[in-house]
Design a binder for these strands. Structure first.
Length: 434
DNA sequence: TCTGGGGTCCTAGGACCC
DNA sequence: TCTGGGGTCCTAGGACCC
């Protein structure tokens, strides 16, 4: 490779953010393990098989929108022989790690932004060479992981998002667009609708359009004062970024501020017993996540609610915060959460979702010790948790679990169309020859 | 019958303090 | 009976992201 990371090449003291985005990520993951799905319309559903969260190009062409409820589009999809999958997050997580690892060959400066996106810093590459470099990244990732990606390169993160979007949707760019090449950047901003700018959601888009601001170029030209007043500092930063002034750097793994575990039920739940089980289950997941991140939580919220869509009496509870001694100890989390649930539960409602949120997270290495628990007890607790975690990691989830979280999970979510765990379970490895 | 889950950031307003 | 201004912290709510 003729590109080097040498100091001599580091003369470009601008920024060059490359946004790498996996195309139709969940669908692409399914396709890696079943080549017959190529050229066929494919969708992947959200948890509980509720709505459509990933669509192949063919599925998009059929007019299936992002986030659409399954039941509305099921007839259309059956008529067109669309392949439908429940989400398989274990598989997608593994594939994501592979893609992210592959990117490390090209730059030491990487921010993993989401399961299917990463920002790279490419300022050590000659501006005129950046798109050629990006093409090599793209080919390498496809070859090493089977996942197709698109890359947008620009002096700010916001512009790199826009470049990425254009690279992905206009075939002429073939998946890579660098705004450092000789283009009229304003022309690209003009074809970018305001709703498609990173940070502009449905509400803001409506307000902007009412003001006659229809695309990214219009927004770029809007007066600072008006932006500050109507879109707050977030909006001002966004506009500066559109003008090429970076307001955000690469963010390396920042410590988490809150952790959530929540799920919709497979069917509505009325009895407190089922709710208690689900809450214990979420407390268990929260404990695992906390220990993974070496954190302890100080505040806990319990959440449960009825459906937003069904008829009937509504009840929506987010109770908390309750203070807990900083902990990642599952039984303590279960006890605290169930206490809150017992206090706030009301019978005769059809609940469709429950969950737990923990806040105010501190590193487990310097938590304030509970004066009433002797050091020895705490060490025992930690040892037990570590043991349970390692058994569950080696022998599969819920090999060991707390009785409070129940054995049957009559309330658990549906996932009738899940693919196999091709790479995380020995029993489900793909067969080359049967 | 059927509509996801897990996050972050900003602002306004109230409580409280000096 | 009169009674300011400024700061901090917390929370709820809104908006956004993938």
């Amino acid at each position: 490779m003729s590109f080097t990371h040498s100091a001599a090449n580091n003369a470009y003291n601008d920024h060059a953010f490359a946004l790498v985005d996996c195309n139709n990520f969940f669908v692409s993951c399914e396709r890696v393990f079943d080549p017959k799905l190529r050229n066929r319309a494919v969708v992947v559903l959200s948890s509980n098989d509720g709505c459509i969260v990933s669509r192949s190009q063919e599925a998009k062409k059929l007019g299936i929108p992002m986030g659409a409820p399954l039941h509305e589009y099921l007839p259309l999809m059956l008529a067109h022989n669309v392949a439908i999958f429940s989400s398989n997050f274990v598989l997608y997580g593994d594939m994501s790690n592979r893609v992210m690892d592959a990117l490390d060959q090209f730059t030491p400066y990487k921010e993993i932004y989401s399961i299917d996106e990463a920002f790279l810093e490419l300022n050590f590459i000659d501006p005129a060479e950046r798109s050629r470099y990006a093409r090599i990244i793209r080919e390498t990732v496809i070859q090493q992981t089977g996942i197709p990606i698109s890359i947008g390169i620009a002096p700010t993160k916001t512009l790199s998002k826009i470049a990425n979007r254009v690279a992905k949707t206009s075939p002429e760019w073939n998946g890579v667009l660098s705004l450092y090449d000789a283009h009229n950047v304003d022309e690209i901003l003009k074809i970018t609708e305001v709703r498609d700018i990173w940070g502009i959601g449905r509400r803001l888009a409506l307000r902007l359009r009412a003001e006659g601001i229809y695309n990214a170029y219009d927004l770029k030209c809007a007066p600072d004062k008006w932006i500050r007043k109507n879109l707050s500092v977030t909006g001002l930063r966004m506009v500066l970024e559109l003008r090429g002034t970076p307001c955000a750097e690469l963010a390396y793994r920042s410590p988490k501020k809150s952790i959530t575990s929540s799920r919709s039920f497979g069917r509505p739940v009325e009895k407190i017993a089922a709710l208690e089980e689900s809450i214990a289950h979420h407390a268990t997941r929260i404990g695992e996540k906390l220990r993974e991140e070496e954190l302890c939580a100080r505040l806990l919220f319990v959440h449960f609610r009825t459906s937003y869509f069904r008829e009937g009496p509504r009840h929506n509870v987010t109770e908390g915060p309750v203070l807990i001694v900083p902990t990642a100890h599952t039984p303590k989390l279960i006890a605290a959460a169930q206490k809150v649930l017992k206090r706030t539960f009301k019978p005769s409602f059809a609940y469709t979702k429950s969950g737990i949120i923990v806040n105010d997270l501190v590193s487990d290495s310097h938590i304030q010790q509970d004066l009433f628990v002797v050091e020895e007890t705490r060490e025992k607790e930690e040892k037990l948790m570590r043991l349970i975690d390692s058994v569950n990691q080696l022998d599969g989830k819920r090999t060991i679990f707390f009785g409070a979280s129940g054995a049957n999970h009559s309330w658990s979510a549906k996932h009738d169309r899940r693919s196999q765990n091709f790479i995380s379970s020995w029993d489900e490895l793909p067969r080359v020859r049967a």
